[in-house]
Write a protein that binds this DNA or RNA. Structure first.
Lengths: 339, 339
DNA sequence: TTGTAAGCGTTATCAT
DNA sequence: ATGATAACGCTTACAA
């Protein structure tokens, strides 16, 4: 190792230039992979970089280029409260996974009660090149206006279809619910109930619509509906109300796995068995359903794919490429023992 | 709104200075809360800031101050693969939560096969003021050397106690396992088995040690040990081996909930009931155990607290405050129906 | 193809 | 208490 290589302080581009005997501009070109640099020089510069263990300073680079190479992931308060939301955890992993192939860095912004404006300022303050906004079950698009000054990709569609949001990645909830319901029909169920989610959340609305559509196409009754808020307890309560109607029920589609698990207990309380008396299908494919007894047949929610698709879309947007304004992700049925 | 207020471009500190009729230095002082600025001027500057909707540029600030106000959260590859690891998801939330009270920003770095060096360079390249390194079940401290050039806080202790890592936040696994085992003893169990985790991971070692200690203190046999790798399937296999020994077993401590759930099925297969024939206690308090039938009695793993403690510790370290080199987090028993 | 030099928006060191 | 004026480390016209 030579003299300069032993330097303790963080090496700068200037030091690399001196060592390689070229100008800073040339070093910069090499670092940024400019095509018009003589191979010999490229080699010399790279050698100097390696010897000095040079790493570009991100702040300086951002300041000069006006690009941060960072993107923000905004987690709404409601999600932040649900510490065990597997959907979100998986989505984050998908984002991180997609980003690990790029130069971009992920900044997680968790919204707390008083930070909504802080977040907005952060996004608008040139701290990131773009933002990802997730809103799981809710249709909250309070960041819609931010997308006018910054590339933004939303996860999930807005509640009001009229509110056009530039870029979204969503799961085909209607189709997924149809898949689930059709499976119940195919296995012979004729009195199929549903425990629907809140109707002020797009997935709640869409999954109910899918259930209804499958039933109507077969000419079956679609009046066995009760609502829950996606939690296990409301699922159990809804199931009890369904059972209390006194009408026969041989199949159930719950708008998510947690409510399906809640329904399990209500069904058992009534002395009925799953799937013999009532076949059950959920939605989300989370661990609640996978580890339940019997294991829950459900619709897979492509959380990981959603995260990586959102990230990829945002990066393309930032780099100025053309991207579809809305991507719809497919769901698939996961067959287990409950139906 | 006045003329200047309508400016479309991102306002700079210089524009604020011009509008307030002061120098840039003064604006900078106000922004940074310097105590020696005349109240009147502070007010004038703040008014200008509000009118222009000024937000400081992070890159410029970092470049000049040599501080980034960002910290990295490094997720090792093994964790990145386990997409449904609730421990990690909750920990991240804890980190984000603690950070939301500060000026710091979180950058998530997911390690993929080929990125270990990329990550190291990132950390050393002045991109962050400090780093958080998590290694859940593993004792991997390959980033130990990084802590010589950057404040680093590790989650979990190193496998080899000799390898002194500067700052760590850990869960008291030994004590938690003792708590679990003692509970089984208290409810009358005398032939208590354990499904231990891998012995090349600190939690695997510590939880086995805790089980053993509780047993020895009561003079009970500690030979009913089988090992698993923390997954449900290996838990089931281990339980089968335990049962195949032909010796009586009336209690089981599984080193984590997932293996406990695996053991559930093996116990049922053998025609035994939980908790009447065999009482079961797990460790982690994740959703696998909470939604199982019967609900699993387990030891709560303070993931959220671990995340926020790590974050707080790192921030203190960065700000030059004195902090304890090692923090040990308490666990507590969560009583449910399985024991 | 390579070098020169002017910023990028702050902070920080001096004077005043 | 306030204001000039250098940095901070890099990118990027523009020149050569």
């Amino acid at each position: 190792m030579t003299q300069a290589g032993a330097a303790g302080a963080t090496p700068t581009l200037e030091m690399v230039a001196a060592r390689a005997g070229v100008s800073r501009a040339t070093v910069s070109r090499v670092v940024n992979g400019s095509p018009k640099v003589t191979p010999e020089i490229v080699e010399a510069v790279q050698a100097a970089i390696a010897e000095l263990n040079y790493v570009p300073n991100r702040a300086a680079r951002s300041l000069a280029s006006r690009r941060t190479h960072a993107i923000a992931l905004v987690v709404p308060e409601s999600t932040a409260r649900v510490f065990n939301d597997p959907f979100f955890a998986t989505l984050v992993q998908g984002v991180a996974l997609a980003l690990s192939d790029t130069e971009y860095t992920l900044s997680m912004l968790m919204e707390s009660e008083r930070s909504v404006d802080k977040t907005r300022r952060y996004l608008l303050g040139g701290n990131v090149d773009g933002a990802l906004v997730v809103s799981h079950h809710t249709g909250d698009h309070s960041y819609a206006h931010v997308s006018r000054s910054l590339p933004v990709v939303f996860g999930g569609r807005p509640l009001d279809p009229a509110e056009q949001v530039t870029h979204t990645v969503d799961v085909d909830n209607v189709h997924g619910a149809e898949l689930a319901t059709r499976h119940l029909i195919d296995r012979g169920c004729r009195r199929i109930a549903t425990i629907a989610g809140p109707q002020d959340m797009p997935p709640g609305v869409d999954r109910l619509a899918g259930w209804r559509r499958a039933l109507q196409e077969e000419g079956l009754a679609d009046d066995l509906v009760e609502f829950g808020d996606f939690s296990p307890t409301t699922g159990a309560a809804a199931m009890r109300r369904l059972l209390d109607r006194g009408e026969p029920i041989d199949g159930l589609f719950a708008a998510n796995d947690q409510m399906a698990i809640g329904a399990y207990s209500a069904i058992r309380e009534a002395g009925l068995s799953i799937p013999d008396d009532i076949a059950v299908v959920g939605f989300d494919d989370d661990n609640y359903g996978a580890t339940a007894v019997p294991p829950l047949t459900t619709v897979h929610q492509p959380s990981l794919e959603m995260g990586s698709t959102m990230a990829r879309t945002l990066v393309q947007l930032i780099e100025g490429e053309d991207v579809e304004p809305a991507t719809m992700l497919d769901t698939e049925l996961v067959l287990r023992a409950s139906a």
